[in-house]
Write a protein that binds this DNA or RNA. Structure first.
Lengths: 113, 113
DNA sequence: CCACCAATTGAAAATTTCTGCAATTTGCTA
DNA sequence: TAGCAAATTGCAGAAATTTTCAATTGGTGG
């Protein structure tokens, strides 16, 4: 039964998140469930491109889709996504700060060699 | 100055994590700093391939490298990475559970249609 | 100094992922 | 029921990533 190593499942999950459009979608959905039309106006992407990315997220089980009349409403499948996005923001901050410190050191060296 | 939108920076960060070898490296380093040689015995990858992935992580500022005599010791650059990996495990669990529930529903349907 | 081990680099080949187009599906309403 | 809007699908070309190979650097012991 056991087929995919855990670290590979993790990598695949992160890869899912590794696209600007999909990140935007998840961020928007972490505020509230939303029809495709709203996502489309909020994100700079063609309808067909958005559909592709939504399909990726749907297949992974990270979001759910539900048809409501003429529109389809998407929602996050669970709270875990929002948590991960928060952790990501924290790490990103650290990384950017780290870079900035390095940059400052380089500038200091250049100023007074 | 402000050049890259935040959601794109996030996507790039996730993309960094989207590879099995890089995930393994970060998990191992979250236990303790480690020379390349140890990573090499723990992960199923060629030395040259590992170097490529280490270079990716280094350039991003997620890990640091320090030469100690004949070997190079790598370490996580900050605690944020470890936190993110924990959040990832949680989300992955949720996703797998969600899938399992869906699977069970399908099996139930098939059993008593 | 030379030979060797650890690790890295650069670049081409192989693979994966993205984008954009044409065509289709679904539900509503005139 | 014909027509329209909302979404999706399948696919081909373009773009990005990964793998692999040959060559190189840094450090150490003989």
């Amino acid at each position: 039964m056991k087929s995919v190593p855990l670290y590979q499942a993790k990598a695949e999950m992160f890869r899912l998140l590794g696209h600007p459009v999909r990140i935007r979608v998840l961020e928007l959905l972490s505020e509230r469930p939303m029809p495709v039309r709203d996502l489309l106006t909020a994100i700079d992407v063609e309808a067909t491109g958005l559909s592709q990315h939504l399909a990726v997220l749907r297949r992974s089980g990270m979001v759910t889709a539900q048809r409501e009349g003429p529109t389809v409403v998407y929602a996050l499948a669970g709270g875990g996504v929002a948590n991960l996005l928060v952790a990501a923001r924290t790490l990103l901050t650290q990384m950017l700060v780290g870079r900035n410190e390095l940059l400052n050191e380089l500038l200091a060296e250049a100023g007074a060699p």
